[in-house]
Design a protein around this nucleic acid. Structure first.
Lengths: 226, 226
DNA sequence: GTCTCGTTTTTTGTATTCAAAATTCTGCGT
DNA sequence: ACGCAGAATTTTGAATACAAAAAACGAGAC
């Protein structure tokens, strides 16, 4: 059937920044950067006052974050920031490993020369950060590399899942600061990751990423309570 | 400090069945079984009337389902049941494959003899269902097998992720009914999965599950629009 | 002191209400 | 018919209001 065109048919699908997204993002930041410590009981009214919104949108934001696993809700008892338990990390890391490996496999055949040049630059920055002992720079370069792989993997669902898990896991990283030994090892591992990218070898890249994650977990293990 | 014990310290952590969970479950069912077809625009008031609740809890349920990817929300335009696009499936299947493979790897060393007996019985039912052409029985046995592996893998996060993705993917299965050829292939693949379980061989089981999923996707590809 | 039971206060869950945006409807002009 | 501007209606987003449950408090018994 040939329906006449209506105004809304032409509406560009530009994403509007909505209050819900805003709240989710701000809360996520507070949780990930540790301002809202793991295990903290969340008081709705308090957050409402802080953000200047009513409880309705705040509660919706909490539901979204619960879906990401950053918030744990107990009926009639309210919400709390998801605690980081050792068991939690032992659960999450293999999953992140498997997903990152998949991202690597998917991405490997599709790296453009520009991507590889960018990866190269990131590796240079990573090594410089190591030499300087600049932890923030190290993390930035590290994250950018993983982001690059995710971008080329071109799988939004995969990206969403990894980011969700990563938000949970990365809270633990702050607790245990990188030992000198582990730091050097991480740089070496990234060197291999770069090589695998250059070779556009999916199996290799996947395996290297998986190992990288596994080592990250064992490094973290020693620094965690329980 | 030694705080005196209070009543609530003793409260058993029994999970209360809450309205939110109820709504999420019912909506998920409607979506997964196709009553709410993919791409359908969701009218809040309509659902409220149907469920006999007000919009507040319903909207929270929609947020939760959006987190699972079953609902897509557009600001100021409302919600719709997530469409099943070909691209969607191409995205989701490799992820499910990687996660099921991980589940297999984690589970393999931990199968008890009782688990293997149960798996054996399920395989028998699977073959019987095939012989009888009983699709429902096939699906039940199939799902039970995967559930068994997930149970032994003992990773709640992994289970949650797989179930979430599976809810999205399994909607597509209804659209494309199993060809006779694919059905037989699936049974054979399950035979290998059972063997790998018996051998408690993680790498083998993981690989077998991954192949199983990959084949499922190619079978589905032919029956999908686009 | 501390345990218990009942009362008060806080907090959560849900319904209702109000405002703003989007969609549909209507009448006019071509 | 068709397109279009503007009014009427629906629908979404957010705040408020109310009910019920949980937590905190407090007085009396032991």
């Amino acid at each position: 059937m040939n329906r006449p065109l209506r105004d809304h048919d032409l509406q560009a699908p530009i994403a509007v920044r909505t209050l819900h997204d805003e709240l989710v993002d701000r809360l996520r930041s507070l949780i990930v950067d540790g301002t809202l410590a793991p295990g903290t009981k969340v008081n709705e009214q308090m957050l409402c006052d802080q953000f200047g919104v009513s409880r309705t949108p705040l509660r919706e934001a909490l539901r979204s974050l619960a879906g990401e696993g950053l918030i744990v809700q107990t009926p009639r008892r309210g919400a709390m920031v998801a605690p980081i338990t050792r068991a939690d990390l032992e659960e999450a890391f293999p999953i992140v490993g498997a997903l990152e490996a998949l991202a690597g496999e998917l991405a490997a055949p599709n790296f453009t020369d520009a991507d590889l040049i960018a990866a190269d630059a990131l590796q240079t920055r990573l090594e410089a950060a190591h030499a300087d002992g600049d932890l923030a720079a190290h993390r930035a370069a590290n994250e950018a590399t993983h982001a690059l792989i995710l971008k080329v993997a071109a799988n939004p669902t995969l990206e969403r899942l990894i980011r969700g898990l990563d938000a949970r896991v990365s809270r633990a990283r702050r607790m245990a600061n990188l030992s000198a030994e582990r730091w050097g090892q991480a740089v070496t591992e990234h060197r291999e990751i770069l090589e695998a990218m250059r070779a556009r070898d999916g199996a290799w890249l996947g395996a290297a990423l998986k190992r990288h994650l596994a080592n990250k977990l064992s490094a973290l293990r020693d620094h965690l309570p329980d």
